[in-house]
Simulated scan of single mutants.
Amino acid sequence: MKLKLGILDQSPVSHSDSSAASALVNSINLALFAEEAGFHSIMYSEHHGVMAYGSSSPELLAAIVLSKTKRIKVGTAGIMMRNYSAYKIAEWAKLLATLYTERFMLGLGKAPGGLKDAVMALNNHKPVTLSNLETKLEEIIQYIREEKGIYEGLIAQPTQIKNLPEILWLGSGMTSANEAANHGVGYSFAAFMNSDNGRDVTENYLKEFDETKYASKPSLQVAVAVSVAENSEQAKRNAYGMAYQFLQSRQLVSPEPVLSADMIEQRILGTKDEEEFFTVLDRIIWGNSQSVFHQLQMVSERYQTDDILLLCNMYREEDRLNTYKNLIENNK
């Protein structure tokens, strides 16, 4: 079965380079490759105050890539809502949806997008108001659909757009699935973060989806982490750097640029973190191109969707690109 393969690009910085500028150039080049190779979509994440990722502004990167491509869908995965007003998000989302009809996807997330100091700086050095982010989603939808909102008569330009942007609610649990279903928006499930009860979560989204709200039918996307190489052992070792970043995030430590497998073994083996590291590593799908693609087909069947988003951060950019090249070739 042919899949709708997409790319989740975090603009990873490698320890071999340690340059955000190089990571951003890689992101642009990856988008151009993805367009030519036939990928369905490419989406950009948001991170603040960390050395691991080169982009802090997925909406800007999405706009640049939209201007350089003609077919591929481009989006945010996602905008960290607690750091911005609903009104401003709706304004630039409508602008991109107007200029790039049916190509821009607005992915929204509830995570802070960075550690404490970064979040404080984003919020004018004030503690974040832990308001209901579901309410902010409602406000964004009101501004996009030009419905009556908090401020009487307030418009979000551009108005009267012909095609509303597709909205994806990011999450990895039942609460986010229910929220997406209740508001009739798409749901992007982060299986690389939580696959234990993933099928229950996504089935609930599909079952409870309200077709009377924003969209007329559900749109389920599943994000997985992958690593492809000529043999399974090399693919596994190529995935070490990504797994170590995941581990650091779980431990609320600022992720470092992608390290080599040798560096990580020196840090991990024989320490208290060894068991947890390999547990995290097991969430990544690795192997040769045929075996990984077969597992992606199994993911598609398990979650009842053909929309699969691929995340791959590696020490060497050529290994990351090779992973995407091999998987899209198997999808033809």
Rank of each mutant, 00 (worst) to 15 (best):
L3E: 08
K4R: 13
K4P: 03
S14P: 05
S14F: 02
A20W: 02
N29A: 08
A34Y: 07
E36L: 12
S45P: 10
M51K: 15
M51V: 11
A52H: 01
S56H: 02
P58A: 04
L60Y: 03
L60T: 09
L66F: 08
V74H: 05
M81C: 00
N83S: 08
S85E: 04
A86T: 07
L99T: 04
P112I: 03
G114D: 08
D117R: 10
N124D: 14
H125R: 13
L130D: 11
Q142M: 11
Y143T: 03
R145G: 05
R145P: 03
E146Y: 11
K148S: 12
P165N: 10
E166D: 11
W169H: 12
G173M: 10
G186D: 02
S188G: 13
A190V: 14
F192I: 07
D196A: 13
R199P: 03
T202A: 07
Y205M: 10
S216R: 10
V224H: 09
S232Q: 14
K236G: 01
N238L: 04
S249V: 12
Q251H: 10
I264V: 06
L269W: 04
L269R: 15
T271N: 02
E274H: 11
F278I: 02
V280N: 00
L281A: 06
R283W: 06
I284H: 00
I285Q: 04
V292F: 03
F293L: 04
L296C: 06
M298H: 13
D319P: 01
N326E: 14
I328W: 08
N331K: 06
